[in-house]
């Protein structure tokens, strides 16, 4: 059970209030029609599965309903930071 700081509510809440929404920073191609099947397939289906630092998208489902990003260590489960949509992570994998 994670303890997650919601950057909008500005306090820690229990994991059960949140939904994980997969890898963060997967931008929808601006011109999908220009994508090859392979490119589109990569956008849709291919995700990182790192051991260590990972950037994830979460939503405070039972709280403010806002999405936000989280940098998390997938091995130790430490949450290194949370940051709002549109912002860049300050902790990145080496």
């Amino acid at each position: 059970m994670f303890h997650i700081y919601c950057p909008h509510c500005a306090e820690y809440r229990e994991e059960e209030e949140f939904h994980a929404a997969g890898q963060a920073h997967i931008a929808r191609p601006l011109d999908p029609e220009a994508c090859s099947d392979k490119e589109w397939g990569e956008y849709m289906f291919f995700r990182k599965n790192p051991r260590g630092i990972h950037h994830e998208l979460w939503v405070h489902a039972a709280g403010c309903r806002k999405f936000f990003n989280m940098t998390r260590d997938t091995q130790s489960y430490e949450i290194k930071e949370v940051y709002k949509i549109g912002e860049k992570p300050s902790v990145v994998a080496e």
Partner: peptide
């Protein structure tokens, strides 16, 4: 609802 919010908040704010 979460789907709509996802697209609005992350793709088309």
């Amino acid at each position: 609802l979460e789907w709509l919010e996802l697209y609005h908040q992350t793709e088309w704010p």
